[in-house]
Amino acid sequence: MGAITLEKVTKEFSGVKVIPGVDLEIAHGEFVVFVGPSGCGKSTLLRLIAGLEDVSSGTIRIDGVDATGLAPARRSLAMVFQSYALYPHMSVYKNIAFPLKMAGMPEADIKAKVEAAARTLNLTDYLDRRPGQLSGGQRQRVAIGRAIVREPEAFLFDEPLSNLDAALRVNMRLEISELHQSLKTTMIYVTHDQVEAMTMADKIVVLHAGRIEQVGSPLELYRNPANVFVAGFIGSPKMNLIEGAPAAKYNARTIGVRPEHIQLSTESGEWAGVVGVAEHLGSDTFLHVQVEGIGQVTARISGELNIHHGDRVWLTPPPERIHRFDGEGTAI
């Protein structure tokens, strides 16, 4: 089990409403990612679920039971912190064993469980070391180990990979996804990296200034962003958002078209422009085109391309790929 429900949850810090009101359903076994810009309240929301902060109003249910006033330890949730929060004076073994020891489990059972967890996470050789003697990735795994031995109803991750370098981050991302496949436990994962969100999530919750902007599967958010904010946040490179006359042509205040959907031609098309910077990634090329009467538009062209700074190109947004938004920024 591990279904979590938030009903009208609000949180204020000394008068400032950081979370003005959130309703959210998380089903058992789901991998949910909270994503949003820095300071939007992702950590706060996670800490509310964990019980490390008290809600100002609203209800949190875990498996249908009201857990709003429950102490963190009694919610059967496990959390992996951004700073790992390992206990520096304890060995890796003792770190992982700590929650079991606190639960009063017999020593023999603790040993079996810790060793099993260490095997899953490739930590067997490091059990006697202190956290200070481990690399960032190994520390991360210890933190995860400490969480999994408790067999919680749900895991909470607060930007667990943000202290790792890019290559390791990709690795750990896969490991966490695999862990989710094998444990099938609910996981709530906070990140501000939309690539992590897209690749790992069953369900993405996009937060903005403490509000939920949209909830959906990665592809739903990609295909049908509910508003301008989500449209701009999900997808890399960012969706081109265009206002004014070109948008009015489509009966919208703002139109959006993703760089990868734009068709490029060197002879003719809807929007004429001059190539500014061309970023060649090998598999793709990002063209930043200065379009007359619109401004900068980014196009993503697959394959190698012989287009350079200053070249004149024509861009055409396919009509079926255009997202239209009204004056409030809501999708039409």
Binding site: P72, A73, A85, L86, F98, M102, R146
Partner: peptide, 25 residues
């Protein structure tokens, strides 16, 4: 570190256990 205390709290350690296992060391 505040997160260390919070981690211990989530791991089921009460104030006394936190004092002896985290604060005192």
């Amino acid at each position: 570190d505040r997160e260390q205390k919070e981690a211990a709290e989530m791991d089921g350690a009460g104030p006394v256990s936190i004092f002896f296992h985290i604060t005192l060391p």
